[in-house]
């Protein structure tokens, strides 16, 4: 929708532009330049700092001070960093696949009138958007299920999301039903129809949901903090960063213990250097994919808006 050329209405050229108009246009550009600067500078700043050889007050603001990749090399040598990167990637991949599959299948089933109790079950799912047991009861049941310190606590509670299901159901309802009907006449079962016909026809919405779910999974840290904080093997990148930010002493000790084999007077790893570098590592996947996938994010909003 927003990709159409005619995004801006009334953008017809007027023959004479008033001075007031010109002043406004200039100010408007300046305003957006400032806004872009405010949004991008903090990210740019940590990138520059993470590429600086040593962190010196007042240095390395716009360009790296003593440019080097040594921070990255050393951070990846730190204990547990690669493991947490692996956990973050795994939960993002597995979590996204499970969420997309479950929500697509549910969204599809809710378009089928032959489904017994369709209305009731659909209500049952959508009500969860407004009513929730709350953080403590959820914690207690997850403990009851034995999911504390288990990888599955990252992906199972979020596998079914009411909002995604509404988006998917809306989308599938808009598809032509003739293909599905002819497949049904050929004797195809519901799962075959879902996998062979509905999925390929719904790729745009599946991509949208996948993009949302993967960003959610990559950015999650609170579940790590509540459910799996005693199991270091399940620490995600985000939570690792959180711990580095809050446990300055532990971090300093860890660096100290490392410097035995990597001691270099000049490019010694510092707590700030570690924090900045880990922040960049935790943020880069989102930054890399975001500009390319922006239209999928926006599509999600637009479908939601039409429904709302």
């Amino acid at each position: 929708m927003t990709r159409e050329k005619k995004l801006s209405p009334g953008r017809k050229k007027t023959i004479r532009e008033s001075t007031g108009r010109k002043v406004f246009v200039v100010w408007n550009y300046l305003f957006f330049l400032l806004l872009i600067l405010i949004c991008a500078f903090p990210l740019y700043y940590i990138l520059v700092q993470s590429l600086s050889g040593s962190i010196v007050a007042g240095k390395g603001i716009l360009v790296p001070y003593r440019f080097t990749f040594s921070n990255y090399r050393d951070v990846f040598r730190m204990e547990g960093i690669l493991d947490s990167l692996l956990i973050s990637v795994s939960r993002t991949v597995i979590g996204t696949v499970i969420t997309v599959f479950c929500c697509m299948l549910m969204g599809y089933l809710f378009t089928k009138e032959e489904l017994p109790g369709r209305r009731f079950f659909y209500r049952m799912v959508t009500v969860t958007m407004y009513v929730s047991g709350g953080i403590i009861p959820t914690f207690l049941v997850i403990r009851m299920y034995g999911l504390i310190n288990s990888f599955w606590v990252y992906v199972l509670p979020t596998a079914v999301s009411a909002y995604y299901i509404i988006l998917i159901k809306t989308y599938i309802e808009g598809l032509p039903s003739s293909v599905e009907e002819s497949a049904m006449l050929d004797g195809a079962g519901p799962m075959t129809i879902f996998l062979r016909i509905i999925m390929p026809m719904s790729l745009p919405i599946a991509a949208t949901i996948a993009v949302y779910a993967s960003v959610y999974q990559w950015n999650s840290w609170f579940d790590n903090h509540i459910y799996t904080f005693t199991n270091n093997a399940l620490t995600t990148m985000q939570y690792k960063l959180y711990k580095f930010l809050n446990q300055a002493e532990r971090l300093a000790e860890q660096i100290e213990s490392m410097s035995g084999d990597t001691s270099r007077l000049d490019n010694a790893l510092t707590p700030q250097g570690v924090r900045m570098t880990v922040t960049v590592v935790a943020v880069i996947p989102v930054m890399m994919i975001y500009p390319f996938l922006q239209r999928y994010f926006i599509k999600g909003i637009n479908i939601g808006a039409v429904k709302g």
């Binding site: 903090p42 700092q49 930010l245």
Partner: peptide, 27 residues
């Protein structure tokens, strides 16, 4: 320019609060 402004201003929505805190800490 409009597209650039849109991409950059929406970017902060997609970073986690831990990272926002880390940025605030750095600044």
């Amino acid at each position: 320019f409009r597209k650039l402004a849109q991409v950059i201003t929406t970017l902060p929505h997609f970073i986690s609060w831990v990272i926002v805190y880390s940025l605030a800490f750095a600044l």
